[in-house]
Design a protein around this nucleic acid. Structure first.
Lengths: 240, 240
DNA sequence: CGACGCATTGATTGGATTCAACTAAGGTGG
DNA sequence: CCACCTTAGTTGAATCCAATCAATGCGTCG
């Protein structure tokens, strides 16, 4: 059950048989826990094994010399933190646990097994990589050309879509363990401005947020507000 | 000679033998030309073959409903436009030729051959993918947490580093066929503000720019100004 | 209880946008 | 060959979105 979020996600793309499932389960043999607000991987860390999120939220971030921080991705259950880092010498950015996280430490050799011997899973992992890249591109658009209101709306839509993909949304309600500070660092805003923008979204009855959870009251309206187009996640059109 | 920029780039990472070179040369068998300001690939285009830049500049971009445009990457000779798009149904963004471009149309089967039969080249292509992703992450940081002055300085450093990698920099001087509009769309600024920022960089004797070329007068000072750290391109530490 | 993290609010400042005009360079056609 | 038009770059002035500075509320945990 360690890799269940990953399995759920992959099944949106391909049908997995018993053997695939067993092989995926193998990956999370070795797992550990990282406390909230602690680095899961730090900048400069050597690439030892690949990290797979089992449970909890983490963030890919970069610290600037002027003290500012930019979050470049939120990592949810089923996400790989550093899928291909095996090729590289060291991390050029850090990953911090936003909540307590359960993480699997995947041996590179296990991944190699999977990539060389299982075409279906290889394709599925490629798809995951593509999706991560597509999300990253959207983030550039988000911080580059959208105002605060659109940015927050868009990021909520993305989280909603991704959480849906791993089966963690119920009635448009989901766990959202982000502080306004963290949300600000992901959207390129200040915490103060993020706060005011959240208030506006609440006021307009688009969302309910607080106490570690988010409820989207009007998905279509929120997507409209954020200029969100779900097709970049490539869920629909990928045949089974 | 079609794939020469790609070859130069890959050789920063691995040593290629005669056979590798021949195989790379194969890729650019079929090539064509795209006029400046024309779409090389449009949003929504089906994935037919993979596009490899041979010569010229292009940009990966996204148009928003409000008419704004965000450029998410500059594509230089040796860059793949859509390396893995074969898996996906259609493009979720467009690619426009900024100058007249020479482009190779690579058959997916040729790529498969290469990936399944040549470990060294496979690793090298992975490395290219990783580098593209690392650049993308820096762009998020750039537009998210840097001011106009830092953004422009940083992007010039990146271009300088990448052009160096394909052997197109001479005495810190390089061809830069970007309009201020395009630069603005890449940095998330307006053309007007980009213009004023360029003037400041000139005034401070960091760069000479104009007439389609850029000269960096003080590389270290420009890197300092942009908070640029070349290590994310993973050139140095990747053993041969 | 006091300290700390997080959310909220007000007042002020400033970086960047917007709108608009104008120059310079290049290409085209009559 | 010059009048015309387009494209790119530059400049000024007014405006605005978001940042900054600052203070307060509020709950939790040691």
């Amino acid at each position: 059950v360690g890799a269940s979020a990953l399995v759920t996600k992959l099944q949106a793309f391909v049908d997995l048989d018993r053997h695939d499932l067993a092989q995926l389960e193998q990956l999370s043999r070795q797992a550990g826990t990282v406390k909230a607000k602690h680095d899961l991987i730090s900048e400069g860390d050597p690439a030892e094994h690949v990290h797979l999120m089992i449970d909890g939220w983490a963030a890919r971030y970069k610290l600037l010399s002027n003290g500012k921080r930019q979050i470049m991705a939120f990592l949810l259950p089923g996400d790989f933190c550093d899928l291909h880092v095996a090729l590289l010498g060291q991390m050029d950015h850090g990953i911090i646990a936003l909540t307590e996280c359960k993480v699997a430490y995947v041996e590179s050799s296990d991944l190699d097994d999977l990539i060389f011997n299982n075409d279906r899973l290889t394709r599925a992992l490629w798809w995951v990589t593509l999706q991560d890249e597509a999300v990253l591109r959207r983030w550039v658009v988000n911080v580059g050309r959208r105002d605060a209101y659109e940015r927050i709306a868009h990021i909520f839509c993305e989280i909603h879509a991704r959480m849906t993909l791993i089966g963690r949304v119920d009635d448009d309600r989901l766990t959202l363990p982000l502080t306004q500070d963290e949300l600000a660092d992901a959207t390129g805003l200040t915490a103060v401005h993020t706060n005011r923008t959240l208030q506006r979204l609440r006021q307009e009855n688009l969302i309910e947020i607080g106490g570690g959870s988010l409820r989207i009251l009007d998905v279509n309206a929120l997507r409209e507000a954020g200029g969100f187009d779900p097709k970049y996640l490539h869920v629909q059109q990928c045949g089974r």
